[in-house]
Write a protein that binds this DNA or RNA. Structure first.
Lengths: 118, 118
DNA sequence: CAGGCATATGCCTCTCGGAGTATATAACCT
DNA sequence: AGGTTATATACTCCGAGAGGCATATGCCTG
């Protein structure tokens, strides 16, 4: 399966992506920058490629890898519903009030009481 | 260890977070909405809590869980260097040109040739 | 205080994926 | 062709973590 999220769960893969964010790199470049064994780099690149995070082009014996943004955009999109909390973090006041009395948000579904209490 | 990223790699945990994004929920609420066994819910909540994704408050016998945004903000921040690819995706033309001739970006470091060729 | 609901924890098992090593493939050069 | 460089793949080993189930803890109510 290997979902989009589990792929970037791996630290080395994130490092590779961050490297590629700056510029196109060959396998050897990555190996050198990240000081990791070449087979490991190739394996991670394979995973990233098959998941659409990167694409490669051939340059003689070497392969140059570059970012493909779509999966990362997907993650960015997943974060969307949480962004409203960003601003709430600006001052803790609203959170505090929110905790004290019934949240004044309009569309937040009210929980139906399951037990008897409260 | 359990890094921020590996925590949201778990689909059930993402589902829980998405639920909580809408509104504070009790363990029972989550169990019901996501149709998953209660111990599983509790265990995932524990992981999320210890990693700072959520916090709980006590309401009689039940615990109400709510989002804490910091770790998600961290992920959002990690995405930052890639955002420039978003816009490049708008029209494929720029990418294409980018691939054809030396990228006109100002600050992108040029790779030092390692082998002899190219 | 007894019994019941809500949640947490402990234990076991099983799978998945990463590390490491060796080796295969492929293109280049002389 | 033969050797060398660059990258990919195959195989084995091992540990982390998720699921399932039983059980513990805690609070509330009659």
């Amino acid at each position: 399966m290997e979902s989009t999220f589990s792929i970037i769960a791996e630290p080395n893969r994130r490092a590779i992506l961050s490297l590629l964010a700056a510029a196109e790199q060959s396998v050897g470049d990555i190996e050198e920058h990240l000081r990791m064994p070449q087979p490991s780099v190739s394996k991670h690149l394979r995973v990233l490629r098959e998941a659409g995070f990167v694409e490669s082009r051939v340059d003689a014996q070497r392969r140059l890898y570059r970012i493909k943004p779509e999966p990362l955009m997907e993650i960015d999109a997943w974060l969307e519903p949480f962004r409203r909390y960003w601003s709430e973090r600006v001052d803790a006041l609203e959170r505090h009030l929110d905790r004290m009395n019934p949240p004044p948000r309009s569309s937040a579904p009210r929980r139906k009481p399951k037990g008897k209490k409260r």
